[in-house]
Amino acid sequence: MKTSKVWAIAKKEFRDHIRNRWIIALTFIFVVLTIAASYLTGGKAGEELFGRLQGTVSTLLSISSILIPLIAIMLGYSTISGEGENGALPLVLSYPITRGEVLVGKFLGLSLVLIASIAFGFGLGGIVIAVFAGIENTTPYMVFILLSILLGGIYLSLSIFFSAVCKKRSTSIGAGILIFFWSMIYGTIVFGIYLSTGGTLEQLMGSESTLPGWMWKSIVVSPMDMHGTSAMQAFGLEKAFGYAMDVPSYLNLEFLVVIQLLWFLIPAILAYFFFKRRDL
């Protein structure tokens, strides 16, 4: 694997997608919402719904955990299927460059676009928070940004994987939509099962939640919920599946990050094997 070739691909991907109108539009929405959320929840002292910090973090989280996966899916879904279909990728592969170099370069370049987008959104949001609420939460905020990058990385990895598996651009966007939809409704599914198997809302809402063990364990199949839980933990808050609750001790930040790293790595590795064997 030659670094110069990987970089050539990464640069090309970055330059190409930083001009992608969908990415620009989503980043713009992201920036506007984070600034608004930071100002409204972080800047207004006194209005304490769940506590000021938690309010800010939950609001930012609800924005970022939708928009970041969307941006990541938009970046990755057609990078192999679409470019394979339209002929751009075969042309690149007629140069002396291996498929591994192409894939790593694509990951790198697209990740940089994603990081730029996140840095832009949370950077400006962070400035607003710093101005209105002070800088005492700088470290957890940085951790939150890193976790968001990890979340984006997972969805980028998943969408590139689907792009490597699917023959057509249209099927890979379908797969992207499915994985996004899955992530959005996962909490609802879990609670549906919980409530239909005898669980009650009272058990959920109390500070001493008594959720069954399987529910906690099942969090590892939902990157978005893991992200939410770990982000809250970064700020020293307990929240999972969208509710404030006591999280079991084994679901600590480190554990959740490791599982999320696996969610990033495994699709990436699988994407390589599918891409290597793929006809173009």
Partner: peptide
């Protein structure tokens, strides 16, 4: 059917090929 990266300039794309080759 030549398929290029439409958001990049012609020269940038030649530069990219120059580097990979």
């Amino acid at each position: 059917r030549i398929s290029l990266y439409d958001r990049l300039t012609g020269k940038r794309q030649l530069e990219f090929v120059k580097k990979t080759k």
